[in-house]
């Protein structure tokens, strides 16, 4: 079925799951992300983010300018925590 279409490749969340969240009244990418996990994957919504915005625009009848992308948080690439924890502070020469 087309409704089983995967929207979030990382977390394997389908279009019908995202639509269900919208039917329940969620209107932001961040809320949908918390509820369905779409956008919570390793890529942090880089691939699915815009698709989720498009579904919101269509299903909730919102203007594109009303749909903000999900919040960007560091790290913006999947950097292992081990690397982030290994903080090197070089003094300026």
């Amino acid at each position: 079925m087309e409704d089983d279409l995967l929207i979030c490749r990382c977390e394997e969340v389908t279009r019908s799951e995202v639509e269900e969240a919208i039917r329940m009244g969620l209107r932001t990418v961040n809320e949908i992300k918390r509820f369905t996990r779409a956008g919570f994957g390793l890529c942090q919504g880089k691939t699915c983010g815009r698709l989720i915005c498009d579904i919101l625009i269509r299903e909730a009848d919102m203007a594109p300018s009303e749909v903000l992308p999900g919040t960007s948080r560091p790290p913006v690439r999947p950097i292992p925590t081990r690397v982030l924890a290994n903080r090197v502070s070089k003094e300026d020469e």
């Binding site: 490749r9 990382c10 390793l42 890529c43 880089k46 691939t47 690439r77 999947p78």
Partner: peptide
């Protein structure tokens, strides 16, 4: 998928 290190499909 992206070959740019962004989508993480190739991990």
């Amino acid at each position: 998928f992206c070959a740019l290190g962004r989508c993480t499909d190739c991990v």
